[in-house]
């Protein structure tokens, strides 16, 4: 059972959109923005509000890689593994990040909920290859060592806040 505050927040989001099927994706987007993930319990709630079945809401939400049903870390690191990044050695960057954080393709988020590491098919930043994103910020021309350095900086940033 989710805390009541989740529903209050969702109501706030729902009130911004017409109660129609087409509002589903924008609503899920905003929910994910608010919590870093889409709490599963909210899907039937949203579906009911906009007049679709929970099955349909789940069908759409599970289709998009972008939507996550698992809570994510404070820093979401998206390593690009598109063609350009791949040929310019994005995999060693990914491996280094996983190694340092004790993550794998199955386990994507650290236990302290600080980091989430995932791959994406293309960031559209091919000229900066190999690239990765930390939340909304692009890091160009990555190397494994630069990745280690980046983690260190992020940890420091977190400690300060």
């Amino acid at each position: 059972m989710l805390d009541q505050s989740f529903y209050t927040k969702t109501d706030e989001i729902l009130s911004k959109y017409p109660a129609q099927e087409r509002s589903l994706i924008p609503i899920i987007h905003e929910v994910q923005e608010a919590y870093n993930y889409v709490p599963l319990e909210l899907l039937p709630y949203i579906a009911k509000h906009i007049g679709i079945t929970e099955t349909k809401a789940y069908s759409v939400a599970s289709f998009y890689e972008r939507f996550s049903f698992e809570p994510k870390g404070k820093y979401i690191i998206r390593v690009c593994d598109g063609t350009a990044c791949h040929v310019r050695n994005s995999l060693p960057v990914l491996e280094r990040l996983r190694e340092e954080l004790g993550l794998s393709s199955q386990k994507k988020t650290t236990d302290d909920m600080l980091f989430t590491v995932e791959t994406v098919s293309c960031l559209g930043a091919c000229s900066l290859a190999p690239a990765l994103m930390v939340n909304d910020h692009v890091h160009p021309a990555m190397t494994p060592d630069k990745a280690t350095e980046m983690l260190k900086t992020l940890r420091e940033e977190d400690a300060k806040s």
Binding site: L40, L43, P44, T53, E54, T55, K56, A57, Y58, S59, S62, F63
Partner: peptide
């Protein structure tokens, strides 16, 4: 008019299942 099952996930992981 029930929609008890639907497609979920995608690509090689796509399945026809009930919600969740």
């Amino acid at each position: 008019g029930i929609n008890a099952i639907d497609f979920a996930h995608r690509g090689t992981e796509a399945m026809v299942i009930p919600a969740f």
